[in-house]
Amino acid sequence: MITITAVIRAKKGSEATMRQALLDVARHVQENEAQTLGFFISQDESDPALFTTYERFADRAAMDRHNSSSAVARFFDIARPILDGPVTLVTALEISAKPT
């Protein structure tokens, strides 16, 4: 299993726009990406400008399809001007998970 964890900070006042842009990607994943096995979005309770995603892919090809999708391109078109600093990405091999 390949995973990506992303830490994303929006500029103050842009939280709702960032939230919707992330939810739009999640909707695309749900409707179009069977090999994306999980796509989780979190918004920090005490700092609503801070978002994280946790993404689980069946294999590297699924991750590459997701990352090159039109939905991800649209997300970055929206997010780029409202980012408060760089996006931190960690791509990893999942070594443990609680079965669902």
Score class of each variant (00 low, 15 high):
Met1Cys: 01
Ile4Lys: 12
Thr5Gln: 08
Thr5Ser: 12
Ala6Ile: 13
Ala6Phe: 12
Val7Arg: 13
Val7Lys: 12
Val7Gly: 02
Ile8Ala: 06
Ile8Met: 09
Lys12Val: 15
Lys12Ala: 15
Lys12Leu: 14
Ser14Thr: 10
Glu15Asn: 09
Glu15Ile: 11
Ala16Phe: 04
Ala16Thr: 09
Thr17Met: 13
Met18Glu: 08
Met18Ser: 11
Met18His: 11
Arg19Tyr: 08
Arg19Ser: 14
Gln20Val: 06
Leu22Tyr: 08
Leu23Lys: 07
Leu23Ile: 05
Leu23Pro: 00
Val25Tyr: 04
Val25Leu: 04
Ala26Tyr: 00
Arg27Phe: 04
Arg27Ile: 04
His28Trp: 15
His28Val: 02
Val29Thr: 15
Val29Pro: 08
Gln30Phe: 10
Glu31Cys: 02
Asn32Tyr: 11
Asn32Met: 03
Glu33Val: 06
Glu33Asp: 10
Gln35Pro: 00
Leu37Ser: 01
Gly38Asp: 12
Gly38Pro: 00
Gly38Gln: 11
Phe39Ser: 01
Phe39Trp: 15
Phe40Gly: 00
Phe40Trp: 14
Ser42Asn: 10
Gln43His: 08
Gln43Glu: 15
Asp44Trp: 12
Glu45Pro: 02
Glu45Gly: 03
Ser46Cys: 00
Ser46Leu: 06
Asp47Ala: 14
Asp47Met: 04
Pro48Gln: 01
Ala49Phe: 03
Ala49Arg: 15
Leu50Arg: 09
Leu50Gln: 07
Phe51Val: 02
Phe51His: 01
Phe51Ala: 01
Thr52Met: 08
Thr52Glu: 02
Tyr54Lys: 03
Arg56Ala: 05
Phe57Cys: 07
Ala58Ser: 04
Arg60Glu: 10
Ala61Gly: 01
Ala62Tyr: 10
Asp64Trp: 00
Arg65Thr: 08
Asn67Trp: 01
Asn67Ser: 08
Ser69Arg: 12
Ala71Asn: 02
Ala71Leu: 07
Ala73Lys: 14
Ala73Arg: 14
Ala73Tyr: 01
Arg74Asn: 14
Arg74Glu: 15
Phe75Ala: 05
Phe76Ile: 13
Phe76Ala: 12
Phe76Trp: 15
Asp77Trp: 00
Asp77Pro: 01
Asp77Val: 05
Asp77Gly: 10
Arg80Ser: 14
Pro81Asp: 07
Ile82Tyr: 09
Leu83Phe: 11
Asp84Met: 05
Gly85Trp: 08
Pro86Ala: 14
Val87Lys: 11
Thr88Phe: 03
Thr88Tyr: 01
Leu89Ile: 13
Val90Tyr: 12
Val90Asp: 09
Thr91Ile: 08
Ala92Thr: 15
Ala92Asp: 12
Ala92Lys: 05
Leu93Asp: 12
Glu94Pro: 00
Ile95Ala: 06
Ile95Arg: 06
Ile95Glu: 07
Ser96Glu: 09
Lys98Ala: 10
Pro99Ala: 05
Pro99Thr: 05
